[in-house]
Nucleic acid binder design. Structure first.
Lengths: 220, 220
DNA sequence: ATTTATTTTTAGCTATATCTAAAATAATTT
DNA sequence: AAATTATTTTAGATATAGCTAAAAATAAAT
């Protein structure tokens, strides 16, 4: 069974809004996420129900089926692999990749994705630090802590940022706090929660509690 | 003005069938090339006429406009750049790339194509030896000769093959006669036209007139 | 120069994916 | 509990891109 591009996009939106198929999702919220009208969503939900990628009872909401989750994860996998390609090979900036990956994720070729994965050396995380599902849809989720919650002398690796506005990403780029950077908390100021951070065993960096609250770290 | 994927595919087909916009093309031939029905083609020609990428007088055939040629060349450029990527970076075989490139050519991002071009080191020819138009649609066409028409001691570079059946491509791969290979005609047998070829100043190779007739060489 | 055959176009239908406006259902408030 | 509000669905459009069957125009053959 094959899905259209539109169906893939709906499934992906539903997957994200439902927190991986755990929660129920409102028609209105899907419409907001997809930037279209609730009436269009209702229609699509009926179709997705017929294809059995969701279980749909009208007026009562929906549940993703196992099949639906697999499809969503495949699309997410492709999106994130392409993001890695764009950043690592074509030197795109973090904030330039989304639009293009949004198109590339719908290219249909199992061989292409296998080869791309291999070419990129089987990355486990995308440039924003989000995990890349493997070909079976398995995700190796790492425990994450907000940087502002870490204690002095604790170490880890930056794995994600919460605020992905262009301005914030530019700031991070400037200070060298890229995804994958190894960090160590050197000092913490009591009264405002600001931090002194060692980045990649070289640069030290002062950071406000607010900024640190937007950075996720895998502790090690 | 933007074109849909279907419109891009029609323009590309028309460009090829009309030999770069020079000849007129029959509705039936477009239908055959696109594997759909003449009625569908008529309809699309009307639309393409309205968008002024072709000049269309019903029953009388069509002419590509300058705008139409530019669009077609951009699509061809993207297709061939992706083919280079698939073969050189992802290790696709010559006969595996077409289908996937057919999808990738419709990805819409000027930046992506610029970066891809740069990443591939501004290739001038695709893996089949067909020229890649530059971003302005200019094509550096090289004079080509069939290998069987070359004389003893003449040299050149293989730029294309006419028969692109998987069997033929496998044969060429096996004997090392890939696109770009530098060749020299060492000897020519009078009575059957078969040739002795030096490939890349290393291997010598015997080749029937028939095989040589399917290989195009840029003389140098 | 008619007739016949071929090619091309039109008319009307189907499917996808969107929309607006109205109707139906569920949730909230008084 | 009834009325009001919010959410969701249906009904009926529109646009794209294909189809079949029939009509119209052009080309070929007698």
């Amino acid at each position: 069974m094959d899905l259209t591009t539109a169906e893939e996009n709906y499934l992906k939106a539903i997957y994200h809004l439902s927190d991986g198929g755990k929660k129920s999702v409102a028609t209105n919220d899907i419409a907001a996420e997809m930037k279209n009208k609730p009436a269009s969503v209702s229609d699509m939900l009926r179709k997705l129900g017929e294809k059995e990628v969701i279980e749909y009872r009208k007026y009562y909401g929906l549940q993703m089926t196992e099949s639906g989750k697999r499809f969503a994860l495949q699309t997410i996998r492709k999106h994130r692999l392409w993001e890695v390609f764009l950043v690592e090979k074509l030197n795109f900036a973090w904030d330039e990749v989304h639009e293009v990956a949004e198109q590339l994720e719908h290219i249909n070729s199992a061989l292409l994705i296998q080869r791309l994965d291999s070419y990129l050396n089987y990355p486990k995380f995308d440039p924003h630090g989000d995990p890349i599902p493997d070909e079976f849809g398995d995700v190796r989720a790492r425990p994450r802590v907000h940087l502002n919650e870490m204690e002095i002398n604790q170490t880890g690796q930056i794995v994600a940022v919460k605020d992905s506005s262009a301005a914030f990403l530019r700031y991070l780029d400037k200070v060298g706090a890229y995804i994958g950077a190894r960090i160590k908390v050197l000092d913490k100021v009591e009264f405002d929660g600001s931090l002194e951070i060692l980045v990649d065993q070289k640069k030290t960096l002062f950071m406000s509690k607010d900024v640190a609250g937007n950075i996720l770290v895998q502790q090690s």
